[in-house]
């Protein structure tokens, strides 16, 4: 196990370096720069700005400088948001996004797994069809529609929930629901299909034949095996959801990280692009690693040697 992990971590580091290098090269290939605007700054200002951020150097030198600093844990200052450090921005934004995203995944698992199991148990009957309908809708409807509809109902029409910000528990309701919509639907479908597969297995029949009560068959034998695909799905889902959703954050004015991903690219804020990409890549790699380990714990048949 230790050897496996070590190998995995080494591969991850190489992956990370590749991702970072590719991003670095690509973002410099995109036309435009961080200082362009409808009204462009004077030549002198432009020159001073480029010097200030080392953008006047050849690309190879910039690359070397960036990675030398990165290895020391310094992501540098944001080029666009004057006076702010990239790691500070990521830290503050991530705290918020992780809170909203974490709650929404929690909600998705709490709702999705039971719904899926219930549908599987009632296969072909009306509860199954109903859940199928709901989950298909959940997968098909994009989050900006969900967000807007929620906003229309709960804020504008009923005047129950605040429209922006994140100061009290009430503020969390709509963003969390919007974010949870898709994963809930997906998890319930995933659970349903893998549950169906498991329920058809011999050992379930045996358990039933032994006269075990249904709840025991379900929870002790079926669900534990059926949940494996959900665990797999949770890894990347966590990484993506915790780093925030651009759309949902914009609509509900949630000060999370999602917005920075998009705006850094639109603004050609080079250090922010690098910072957010490396952060997301690291998170995805870690989550996948965690999933691998959880896998092994859940299913002893999986061997890493």
């Amino acid at each position: 196990m230790a050897r496996y992990l070590l190998k995995k971590i080494l591969v991850s580091l190489v992956t990370l370096w590749l991702v970072a290098s590719a991003t670095f090269l690509l973002m410099h290939m995109v036309p435009g720069g961080p200082f362009l605007a409808e009204k462009s700054p004077s030549e002198a200002t432009l020159k001073a700005l480029n010097e200030k951020y080392g953008l006047d150097q050849p690309l190879s030198i910039q690359y070397k400088n960036y990675f030398a600093k990165l290895l020391k844990g310094d992501m540098g200052p944001s080029i666009k948001q004057r006076g702010r450090e990239v790691d500070d921005i990521i830290k503050t934004g991530f705290k918020v996004s992780a809170r909203v995203g974490g709650l929404s995944i929690l909600l998705a698992v709490i709702l999705g797994v039971p719904l899926g199991s219930f549908a599987a148990l009632n296969r072909g009957k009306w509860p199954d069809s109903l859940i199928l309908l709901i989950s298909t809708t959940g997968i098909a409807v994009p989050s900006f529609v969900v967000s807007t509809v929620l906003m229309m109902i709960f804020s504008v029409k009923l005047d129950l929930l605040p429209t922006y910000g994140l100061t009290t528990w009430k503020h969390y309701i709509m963003p969390v629901m919007s974010l949870a919509f898709y994963p809930t639907a997906y998890i319930s479908r995933l659970t349903r299909s893998s549950m169906l597969e498991v329920l058809g297995q011999d050992y379930i029949r045996t358990a039933k034949a032994k006269g075990l009560p249904m709840y025991k068959v379900l929870f002790k034998h079926a669900l534990r095996n059926a949940i494996l695909p959900v665990v797999t799905y949770l890894g990347p889902l966590l990484a993506y959801t915790l780093t925030g959703s651009f759309v949902v954050e914009r609509i509900f004015t949630v000060p999370g990280l999602g917005n920075f991903f998009i705006s850094s690219i639109l603004n050609r804020d080079y250090t922010m692009i690098m910072g957010t990409t490396i952060f997301l890549a690291t998170l995805i790699i870690i989550m996948n690693l965690v999933v691998d380990i959880v896998y092994k714990l859940v299913d002893p048949r999986i061997s890493y040697n």
Binding site: V109, H171, L234, L297
Partner: peptide, 27 residues
């Protein structure tokens, strides 16, 4: 196995709640 599943879920809960709890002020 049960422990593992619980751990996986706890991970989610922990992250979700890690920074929660300072909700005051009027909404």
């Amino acid at each position: 196995k049960r422990l593992a599943i619980i751990l996986a879920l706890l991970m989610v809960v922990a992250i979700a709640l890690s920074a929660c709890g300072k909700d005051d002020k009027d909404d």
